[in-house]
């Protein structure tokens, strides 16, 4: 039996034809957007929810909230990864090792060695930014960098966006540990927990884009040897700036009417913190890709 396969008048689009990877930015936007929606929903309805559900289920709800970024990532990144032609093989490993590093090294180093809670909140604004950069920021970003560097880089970096994918993976591991520490160890109110989960997620994703960009550049370009260190410093600085600014926005000034937190400010800042790096990151990655292709076509032309 002869089969007839009609020939297309126009060939399939080259991009679709040759892009066998999961689209990272779309996953991040989906995960971030859904997380913000869930958190906003919880924030607005926390009063009803607290009244509705029995007290004994509250810890379950908090744990569920803590795991939400991980679940979203598993659905929209890891599961989606399995359905593309060229899946990224080390995502789970990076996420798990990132979580272990956070729990075994990162949190003890920050809380017990640097004792940041004992001196940083009481410092001046500039001191806090510098302090958080060189303690919390550098610890977290260095750990995340080490995990990606020694688990996925360079073998599993096939395209530039692998840097973002693995960066997000390690951040998800880190975020999950931070969320569990916050929500399981302290009786955080549900609406506050929702806000904190978004904030932590936003900071980690923002810095993961920077670390991923640095690793990708080192892998695919041949940047100045200081470039990676610079990206590490930038990621640490973002953490160092984001923590006090978010806290400052959330914390109201003293007045004789009282001092009440402003959670919406925190939400807004977290959303901005999530959106800007994605846009900037996608632009930078696109630019780098374009530069690489131009360089390649120049090379081909010269041949």
């Amino acid at each position: 039996m002869t089969s007839f396969t009609p020939r297309l008048l126009t060939p399939p689009r080259e991009k679709e034809d040759i892009y066998p990877y999961r689209r990272v930015w779309r996953s991040i936007i989906l995960e971030g957007g859904i997380l913000i929606a869930i958190a906003a929903g919880l924030f607005l309805t926390s009063g009803f929810i607290t009244d509705l559900i029995p007290v004994q289920f509250e810890p379950v709800l908090r744990i569920a909230l803590a795991l939400t970024p991980l679940v979203l990532w598993l659905i929209f990144s890891w599961w989606a990864e399995q359905r593309v032609m060229q899946p990224r093989a080390r995502l789970i490993a990076v996420a798990v090792i990132g979580a272990l590093a956070a729990n075994a090294v990162g949190e003890p180093l920050i809380n017990q060695f640097f004792q940041v809670e004992d001196w940083l909140p009481l410092s001046s604004a500039i001191d806090r930014i510098v302090g958080y950069t060189f303690t919390v920021g550098i610890t977290q970003e260095f750990l995340k960098y080490l995990v990606v560097r020694y688990v996925a880089w360079p073998d599993h970096f096939r395209i530039r966006l692998d840097g973002v994918a693995y960066g997000v993976a390690v951040s998800i591991g880190y975020v999950t540990v931070l969320n569990l520490h916050l929500l399981v160890n302290t009786p955080v109110a549900l609406d506050v927990a929702a806000q904190r989960v978004v904030a932590t997620y936003a900071i980690q994703i923002a810095t993961s884009v920077v670390i991923g960009y640095g690793l990708s550049e080192v892998r695919f370009s041949d940047p100045n040897p200081l470039f990676l260190a610079l990206m590490l410093a930038l990621a640490a600085l973002i953490t160092g700036i984001a923590i006090p600014i978010r806290a400052g926005l959330t914390n109201a000034a003293f007045s004789l009417e009282g001092v009440f937190p402003r959670p919406l400010f925190g939400f807004g800042f977290s959303a901005v913190l999530l959106v800007i790096p994605i846009f900037v990151g996608s632009f930078l990655f696109a630019s780098a890709e374009r530069r690489a292709q131009e360089a390649m076509s120049d090379m081909e032309d010269s041949i």
Partner: peptide, 19 residues
């Protein structure tokens, strides 16, 4: 790049310790 990044991170942690 990696050596410098490692060195920077260690240096930054030392600064953090001093801070």
């Amino acid at each position: 790049s990696h050596v410098i990044a490692l060195a920077f991170a260690v240096f930054a942690l030392v600064i953090g310790y001093n801070l």
